[in-house]
Design a protein around this nucleic acid. Structure first.
Length: 860
DNA sequence: GAGGATACCTAG
DNA sequence: TTAGCTAGGTATCCTC
């Protein structure tokens, strides 16, 4: 029997732990596989003699102790160390005896690996991977909800590319605000629950449950009461048996609200059993600091909102705005204060309320399926072996550690426990800081003909090229064959021993290449899976460096992280030198490129590096007439020459060709990229770091700068740009809250931390405070929109909620928008052409004016 | 009024 | 307290 592993936990049988794997098979059955017989264990560094003492002292917990040889976690060692593998009866014993054991031995290892993860890692199984199990008879289990329940001692991984036919259930609740206040579960009822299904449920795509008597139809169900509606909701979950439970902001709002509301109702005599997981336990949530964790065992709880936040840079993430920006769909709106009226109505308004609610769950499902939001996470789970829920909730740490633990195990190495809070603080305090990448100062102003080259996966390839790893770091005696990083870190060369991290990276890199090759011949469906897979491989490749410099990582190594960045800095500086001093110029003749010493007469193109950041170099070609093919040829020639001088697999490649570029500062520039497409040459503007790509400027700024860049880069019309800015300024001089341009004046900023932790007054924080007084609560993480209104108060106090400003028709601070939002960014671009602030305000004229002189601007 | 500190967001 | 990393620009607040 084969199934895809969705989730895992463990239970007990005869006081011994039994792992449970939850999954779905190819034909669509949900499966729970019980795996008895796997034993929990930890490692301790101690003399063999200690085992008898430990056994005696913890005889209730320890089943037996094996004397083993393992490598310690960090450092190059010739020999393994004597350790004890302590095998326990119960996974729960680990935290009980851990601290006492630690005091008796030199060190303990792998003491905080969750039992279900320990099992999967040891057996080569992983999240969203396929497993093959030989059933040893059916399992009698009342509590687990699943089509098939089996027991098997022998579960093995199998390679299957496609995913099982997963069932998705999206949901959304509507709560009634009482007297216009934000709903709280203690007093405000849930009145509607909307559901959306993929695949259909009983022939329905959606279903709205109504918490009172109402007109029903095929996709609307009248439940009579709130209690009955909630019961029906959990009944549907059981019947539909979804693998993926989706909502918008569901982890932070809907699920906690449902849980708390049911508690309130049950306290008052209702009898609602909120069983949502396949393990038969009640729905619950845990608050860890600011974040709420939801676990619906056997299924995956997906909150679309944090996924969108990670994936797309939007000014606002309200369902309404996200749907508009990403799905091009308008959300039905019902004013918050009118909800009560809509609910109490029994005719048209109630129907409207129901449709409004239906749309919300539909949108959540659409986000997930149309934007293919979890494909990447499924691929990450499969590639790293981590459970999907852990990847959705957590970060890169778990994935890296999962891969590391698997490889460490194969190499007889043990992994340290996660550091405590104090330990990671100490790591900060040790003084030395991790220095990052090198950014080359840009040649500011307008330039033409720039070839952009970059290193493919720079940091991973540096680690591979120089064998940088925890396991190659020289900690003791220094062998003969070593590699010394520019910062001084010493590592043994791959001739001595190949590092585990470089091996993992090599494997990931090879698999990525293979995956990309397979994509060429795959069908649509396979292609999607393969594309997500290659993306996941790329993410993982790039995770190892960041992980090594993360102070809370099990395997934190400043030496390793510094070695990587120092090689990176050295490399980009060396690349610049190589291009400017060694290669210096490229000779083009008959469609071929030659180096300067090849003594060929042709078109000689001088090279200079005008910018570079971390892994890229921007090479200016000193020739006015360069076409795309020539640029690409020059680019490839430089890239190949540089690559030849590097240790494999480091590789510099041609990325793109910019016909024109404006550099304002480090990390701030705009390029006019020329590209070859099926329809011939295309040009597009690519902006980095400037206001058009930043979310803390208003739309007015974005639009103006976009047009200015367009005029200057595409057409070289500086005077037209000046005129445009003058017109823009004029057009907003008379603006008020009722004009259509008002929307363009809205700025947004993220509310990043608790209000008390702010040391300076901030505009968006004053808005949050104003809104709170009006009964609207903001949450940390929200992006807060605001406009600046006119008045005598200081700047921060004149920030106001846009809706409120509009409703009260507050006057706009036009000067602020002209002097702070328009002029500075425009000036930064145009000052290089002799444009001054006075000219933009409409006073004075630019000196260079004629068509011919303007053209000269591009000719230096 | 200068200059440092703080906050935000982006590049890579 | 759960979260890969550093470099860098810009605006505004705050302190002296």
């Amino acid at each position: 029997m084969k199934f895809q592993i969705l989730n895992a936990d463990y239970t007990y049988s005869d006081d011994l732990p039994v792992v449970r794997l939850y999954g779905r098979d190819e034909s669509g059955n949900s499966i729970c596989c019980y795996v008895p017989g796997f034993e929990p264990y930890i490692y301790a560094k101690a003399k063999p003699e200690l085992s008898a003492i430990l056994l005696e002292k913890f005889k209730e917990h320890i089943r037996r102790i094996e004397q083993v040889k393992r490598f310690e976690p960090v450092g190059y060692f010739k020999n393994k160390t004597s350790m004890l593998k302590i095998i326990l009866y119960d996974p729960k014993s680990v935290p009980i005896i851990r601290d006492d054991v630690r005091k008796m031995v030199d060190e303990i290892y792998e003491t905080d690996i969750l039992f279900r993860n320990r099992y999967m890692i040891d057996k080569g199984l992983g999240g969203m991977g396929w497993a093959k199990a030989e059933p040893e008879g059916d399992t009698i289990s009342n509590e687990v909800i699943s089509d098939l329940k089996i027991t098997s001692r022998n579960v093995e991984p199998v390679e299957i590319l496609k995913n099982a036919p997963l069932r998705h259930l999206a949901f959304d609740i509507e709560c009634l605000p009482l007297n216009g206040a934000m709903p709280v579960p203690e007093t405000s009822p849930i009145v509607l629950i909307s559901l959306a299904f993929a695949p259909d449920f009983d022939g329905k795509k959606t279903l709205v449950l109504v918490g009172k008597g109402a007109k029903a139809d095929n996709e609307t169900e009248s439940c009579g009461s709130e209690e009955a509606m909630l019961k029906r909701f959990f009944e549907i979950i059981k019947k539909y048996d979804p693998d993926i439970l989706v909502g918008y902001n569901s982890n932070s709002f809907d699920i906690p609200y449902i849980v708390d509301r049911i508690k309130t109702l049950n306290r008052k005599g209702a009898r609602i059993e909120p069983i949502a997981g396949r393990d038969g336990r009640d729905l619950y949530y845990k608050k860890i600091g600011n974040v709420t964790r939801i676990s619906v065992m056997g299924r995956i709880a997906v909150d679309v909102l944090p996924l969108l936040r990670r994936e797309f840079s939007l000014k606002q993430y309200t369902l309404r705005n996200a749907a508009k920006e990403l799905l091009g769909s308008e959300k039905l709106e019902i004013p918050f204060l009118e909800m009560e009226t809509y609910w109490k109505d029994n005719g048209e308004k109630l129907s409207k309320f129901i449709e409004y609610s239906r749309r919300d769950s539909e949108l959540a499902l659409l986000f997930l399926l149309k934007l293919r939001l979890i494909d990447k996470y499924i691929a990450l789970a499969r590639v790293s072996g981590t459970l999907l829920q852990d990847i959705l909730d957590g970060g890169q740490t778990q994935m890296v550690e999962n891969l590391m633990l698997r490889e460490y195990m194969k190499n007889d190495r043990v992994l340290p426990a996660r550091p405590t809070g104090e330990m990671s603080d100490e790591r900060y305090d040790e003084g030395e800081e991790l220095a990052g990448a090198e950014v080359l100062p840009p040649k500011k102003g307008l330039l033409e003909n720039i070839v952009i080259l970059d290193y493919k996966s720079l940091y991973p390839t540096i680690m591979m090229a120089h064998n940088l790893c925890y396991t190659t770091e020289v900690v003791g005696e220094r062998p003969a064959d070593v590699i010394v990083a520019p910062t001084g870190g010493v590592f043994v060369s791959s001739k001595v021993v190949k590092g585990i991290v470089p091996s993992i990276l090599e494997d990931l890199l090879n698999r990525r290449q293979e995956t990309r090759a397979k994509m060429k011949t795959a069908n649509e469906e396979e292609k999607r899976v393969l594309d997500a897979t290659q993306l996941a491989l790329k993410i993982l490749l790039n995770s190892f460096y960041g992980y090594s410099g993360y102070t809370r990582a099990r395997l934190y190594s400043l030496t390793l992280a510094s070695a990587v960045t120092s090689f990176g800095r050295e490399n980009i500086l060396r690349t610049k030198d190589l291009i400017e001093k060694d290669i210096r110029e490229i000779i083009l003749k008959d469609g071929k490129a030659f180096k300067k010493d090849e003594n060929i007469s042709g078109k000689r193109i001088g090279l200079s590096v005008v910018y570079g950041d971390t892994d890229s170099v921007f090479v200016h070609l000193a020739d006015k007439e360069i076409n795309f093919d020539e640029a690409q040829l020059v680019g490839n020639t430089i890239a190949n020459t540089v690559t030849d001088s590097l240790v494999k697999p480091m590789e510099l490649v041609f990325d793109s060709f910019a016909r024109r570029a404006i550099f304002l500062a480090k990390k701030r520039y705009a390029l006019l990229i020329q590209e070859k497409t099926a329809k011939g040459l295309k040009e597009k503007i690519k902006v980095k770091g400037m206001e058009t790509v930043r979310r803390d400027w208003c739309e007015l700024t974005t639009k103006t700068i976009e047009k200015v860049l367009e005029l200057v880069l595409k057409e070289g019309k500086v005077d037209d740009a000046v005129l445009l800015v003058k017109n823009t300024i004029n057009s907003i001089k008379t603006i008020d809250a009722s004009s259509p341009l008002f929307e363009d004046l809205i700025l947004t900023r993220q509310y990043t931390k608790k209000i008390e932790s702010y040391k300076n007054r901030q505009p968006h924080i004053t808005v949050i405070e104003k809104l709170q007084k009006r009964g609207i609560i903001s949450h940390v993480g929200d992006r807060i929109p605001f406009v600046i209104v006119a008045g005598n108060a200081i700047f921060v106090d004149r920030a106001e909620d846009p809706e409120y400003a509009q409703k009260k028709n507050l006057p706009i601070d036009v000067d602020y928008y002209i002097n702070k939002q328009i002029l500075p960014p425009v000036e930064r671009i145009l000052s290089d052409f002799g444009v001054t602030r006075e000219m933009l305000r409409g006073m004075g004229e630019r000196k260079v004016q004629t068509e011919t002189k303007q053209k000269q601007l591009f000719e230096f």
